[in-house]
């Protein structure tokens, strides 16, 4: 029996009315239903911040972990049980600030997980400090004279690192985000989805109307080639990062776990056992014991 949206509803969200995270949650729920995946087959690993609460609201297995540490947990869980669909979710502070080191290596390692970053350009749960995505000059509670740093360019960084799937969506366009999340889950390997998720309370400037008026949809551009990483770099540069859609996909990417021949057997979760006698004898021989 296929799962329904109701199976993907758990606790009642505590987000502010109008929060972009509602749209992201809805998009993930619909994507999973569309892909005919049951909630118990999914592990959602979330970080700290408003977006980190998503794992509580979606009804799947979940781990609401440490700030910035979703990716190590998610990658390891996937290696332990390759039958699980593993999603990591968090905010831009979580993924591009405190946890950005893990993002670099998750891209390099290419474990088959999907990482959805709810990007609102601000630290919201701590009530309005600058984020790594906050534009230079913007006044926030931690930068009353204007944010002094340049913002990170997460998608440009991911492309530069050779990520196999790079996309950007928008909480104000859930239908499109559903399609993006489905493609990200289907992609074999690490998939990054940066989802603009407006904070209506602490960063209304970067809101629905602002984004709707500016986002350029590459998926609607018949001339756009999503298998060309340089095209993705170009369009990001031309549009100042305000694009929407699947920017890049490498269908030939081989995930970490598929590249290791020893993982071909059943998932490791089914293999918690001592050494068999032949292997134990080989170990003993390596320590100098002759049988």
């Amino acid at each position: 029996m296929s799962a329904t949206l109701n199976d993907y509803r758990a606790e009642t969200p505590t987000w502010c009315p109008g929060c972009g995270d509602f749209g992201v949650l809805r998009a993930i729920q619909r994507a999973l239903v569309d892909l005919e995946i049951a909630p118990h087959e999914v592990l959602v690993v979330s970080g700290i911040g408003c977006s980190g609460k998503l794992s509580s609201y979606i009804g799947t297995y979940g781990f609401h972990g440490l700030h910035g540490r979703t990716l190590p947990v998610a990658q390891a869980a996937k290696l332990a049980n390759r039958n699980l669909i593993v999603l990591a979710v968090g905010g831009d502070g979580d993924g591009y600030g405190i946890g950005v080191g893990h993002l670099v290596h998750a891209i390099r390692r290419n474990v088959d997980i999907t990482y959805i970053v709810m990007n609102n350009d601000v630290y919201a749960l701590t009530v309005g400090q600058s984020a790594p995505t906050t534009p230079r000059g913007r006044i926030t509670r931690s930068a009353p004279y204007g944010t002094p740093e340049e913002p990170v360019s997460p998608l440009g960084m991911a492309l530069g690192l050779g990520a196999g799937f790079v996309a950007q969506g928008f909480a104000g366009n859930v239908d499109h985000l559903v399609a993006i999340v489905k493609a990200a889950i289907r992609h074999r390997g690490f998939a990054l989805v940066n989802a603009f998720s407006p904070c209506v309370t602490f960063n209304p400037e970067f809101g629905y109307d602002y984004l709707r008026a500016r986002l350029f949809d590459v998926d609607q551009d018949p001339g756009y080639d999503r298998h060309d990483a340089m095209a993705a770099m170009r369009v990001l540069s031309e549009k100042g990062g305000l694009v929407e859609g699947i920017l890049y996909e490498d269908p030939a990417a081989i995930p970490y776990d598929e590249a290791l021949p020893q993982f071909a057997k059943e998932p490791l979760v089914a293999q918690v056992a001592p050494l068999d006698d032949a292997t134990r004898q080989a170990v003993l021989a390596s320590f100098g014991v002759t049988s």
Partner: peptide, 17 residues
């Protein structure tokens, strides 16, 4: 940091991380 969180993620999923 990744090492301890990886070990935790693996254990959560049912192996001995």
């Amino acid at each position: 940091i990744a090492a301890i969180n990886g070990a935790i993620g693996a254990s959560l999923a049912g192996v001995r991380g």
